[in-house]
């Protein structure tokens, strides 16, 4: 093989590598630039696995199949479409879980595309590709503290050991946690920011 041919083939191969690297964030970039903004409610995660290195592991209200009205029965590995509806709090809450792309949704509805599979906490869940969040070093401690405060506040008090059952204590006030995402026409979601209480990351 001549040097010229080798050079052309090598350039094509390295070009392919560059294209693959560029494609990694391409879907997210498209969703960010063209997508519809939604606010999703964060669900509690185990605080001990919450921070993994420089990432926060995120769990959403829409990550749990039981949060949706029973409809179709997905199997692990299936692509699912999670229909959400805008609530009074401004966040979008789970409505129906479908195995096909939904159509004819009202302006108060939207859908996210995910994969039905076991989640990192052992149960069945839905993964949307927005489950980890890279934390800049200067924000890491702040976010860690804010998330930990939030999840601690959501824990139920332990039942009393003896005596008559006490009336349920009102949940302690805790700041709500949300994720700002953008969703494109195919249901692909991209994470924009986290809102924990009055703080926004990044």
């Amino acid at each position: 093989m001549s040097r010229r041919t080798t050079l052309i083939l090598f350039s094509l191969a390295v070009g392919l590598q560059a294209v693959i690297v560029a494609l990694v964030p391409a879907g997210k970039y498209l969703a960010l630039s063209r997508g519809r903004p939604l606010v999703l409610k964060l669900a509690p995660v185990d605080p001990y696995s919450m921070m993994s290195g420089y990432y926060a592991a995120l769990n959403y209200e829409v990550s749990s199949p039981s949060a949706f009205k029973p409809s179709q029965n997905p199997q692990p590995g299936d692509t699912v479409y999670a229909v959400v509806r805008k609530g009074e709090d401004g966040a979008w809450h789970p409505e129906t879980l479908l195995l096909h792309k939904p159509s004819g949704l009202s302006p108060e509805q939207a859908f996210l595309r995910g994969t039905f599979r076991p989640n990192r906490w052992g149960g069945q869940g839905i993964v949307y590709g927005i489950e980890s969040f890279y934390i800049p070093e200067e924000d890491r401690e702040d976010l860690n503290r804010a998330l930990a405060r939030r999840w601690e506040a959501q824990r139920l008090p332990p039942p009393p050991a003896v005596g008559p059952p006490a009336p349920p204590a009102p949940p302690p006030p805790s700041p709500p946690s949300y994720a700002e995402v953008k969703v494109d026409g195919s249901g692909r979601a991209a994470l924009v920011a986290l809102r924990v209480g009055d703080k926004r990351f990044p």
Partner: peptide, 28 residues
Amino acid sequence: MAQVFNVHSEWQRGFGGWAVGALAVAWA
């Protein structure tokens, strides 16, 4: 790149893309 843009995907896809690119260079 996945880290910079907060892309969370099936972990094995990164290895698949790596294999394709390395194989292309190997052949070239």
